[in-house]
Design a protein around this nucleic acid. Sequence first.
DNA 1: TTGTAAGCGTTATCAA
DNA 2: TTGATAACGCTTACAA
Lengths: 342, 342
Amino acid sequence: MKRITIRDVSVRAGVSTAAVSYVLNGREGKVSPETVARVRRAAEELNYIPDLSARSLVNNKSKLIGVVIPQTEDQKQLLLQNPFYSELICGIEARLRQSGYHMILSGIEKGEGYLDTSMQRNLDGAIITGIYQESFYEDLKKVRMPIVLVDSYIYDSYFHVVGIDDELGGYMATKHLIDNGHTNIALVTGMIRKDGVVEKRFLGYKRALKEAELFYNPDHVFEHSVTYQFGQEAGKLIAAKCPEITAAFATSDLMAMGVIQGIRDEGKEVPEHVSVVGFDDISIARLCTPPLTTIKQDAVSRGIMAADRLLTAIEKSKEGLPQEPTIMPLSLIDRDTVLKLT
Amino acid sequence: MKRITIRDVSVRAGVSTAAVSYVLNGREGKVSPETVARVRRAAEELNYIPDLSARSLVNNKSKLIGVVIPQTEDQKQLLLQNPFYSELICGIEARLRQSGYHMILSGIEKGEGYLDTSMQRNLDGAIITGIYQESFYEDLKKVRMPIVLVDSYIYDSYFHVVGIDDELGGYMATKHLIDNGHTNIALVTGMIRKDGVVEKRFLGYKRALKEAELFYNPDHVFEHSVTYQFGQEAGKLIAAKCPEITAAFATSDLMAMGVIQGIRDEGKEVPEHVSVVGFDDISIARLCTPPLTTIKQDAVSRGIMAADRLLTAIEKSKEGLPQEPTIMPLSLIDRDTVLKLT
DNA sequence: TTGTAAGCGTTATCAA
DNA sequence: TTGATAACGCTTACAA
């Protein structure tokens, strides 16, 4: 199937290429209704499909959005095993498609080389999830395209942010446990990096403890990677070595599920021996047994929102006017993994 | 950051644009070592980044691969909630990136309009998962680019296929149940469409029954959508209305997990009252409780393989020589959801 | 209202 | 070994 060009259409319609271009780009005011009709028909008959590379070349708009998600540390594969990202992607893709944009989904090696990608591809914008080294963000700014950050606390008005109140989430989870009578509450978490979402949740955890005048015990913090495996390890440790602990707040559902399994591996039960609260409310959270009590953030909506903000920033690019972060709502979903102590 | 073009590099190096192009494309035989060095240095100093749109325009190679996955029926969102697809994507992306390609991930509305997308973007190839109406494949062929099909049984030598032996998988699952003494085995499945993977698994199920001289009872086939929700419904039905059924084969893990929940909803237990075997071995299969007995197909490897085949087809495009389907291995993972009847 | 033609950044042909 | 230069398909002044 060889390419039908604007030239072919113009010949068939008996007009110039300029006229065709005008019609196809909606500048119909510039040509007679007569011509409009002929061009439309010719394009239709020939089944004309514009070449976006050519367009991109002339007006620097590719209708292409870069979406970056973190990758696993060992392999260099996308972190799609965490359903949170899958759901986010679903939302992003749906919204972009609706507006005729396409998404280039990729992982990046230590935040390097993405500047190249975005220039090569003439990306119209990007949605970046996860956190990377400072230099990565500096690079990104050089490209001068709108960028939406999801899951990072970069205080830079250049970037659009679609976030949640992680500190509050951490607080809510911990508070719920406290309200149910728990006083020795473990925290199971990925690496607490400065300005990362995890740090905020950690801060919320501490605030809830403090408010209840409970002692913050660093030994009750299990910090490593955001994986089921580590959750499981932590769960085992808690069940086997820390009899005083009656509850755990895991900073992601994936880890919470691991914790539950670990506790079981040691012959104990959830929530009878240890209560667990997760974070995210990924779709399997209500499917596992027992259904997980967790802090719900709607990942799909967040994806839609991120794409939405990016698109409006692109469409009326008033040179990236700094904006307020969009904060998505959070709620506690009380299912079956928390026991009320009396 | 304004664009550095090949022109800028040529000026700085004091050579022609042609020379620069040669050097940058590895045709170094055509120019003197002297020139090569100067060009390299100039490009380096200027931090030159080629514009792929321009390249695409001149030589019809975009280094862009289209990846299509099915979408949910109600919303029009990607079916990434099924971890099988997430894992597949991980494999595909990793392999493509390794070779300098990018992936455009999208869902499609009833198989329509993808021809446009592929022409607009000058895609170098595509990986299509799921099954669509016949006309979609016919359209695809017109574009004359290499295409790899995952999860479909289209008997057309134009397409590359990376599949599994679904019939065998269905047989293995059912046989395992029979070997454990079960004789009334339900089938819980998505819509059985002609030439779909599900039909093959269904055929395997029937073959195993026949081989064991068991009666095939259509009433024991629960057929609807590939969702957790339907699995749950089926599970309830089985537990409540079909006391004779002692085991179920679900054609996907997602459904199997639903079945288990449904059975529990009715106050019965897995595997004590009903045994369950799934299909896929998605990552949560070993994480749920009880860990699911299932037919394992390695989705990540399958993604890598699909990308791999596509890339070799693209790189030495001998005009799409038809090839043998690649069949990926299958294995039974025996965990805790099958009870041995004695 | 219409058409001509000059780019956009590359690659590739063909003389020099 | 080099360097002009003509494409590639499109948009958009500018002229007619």
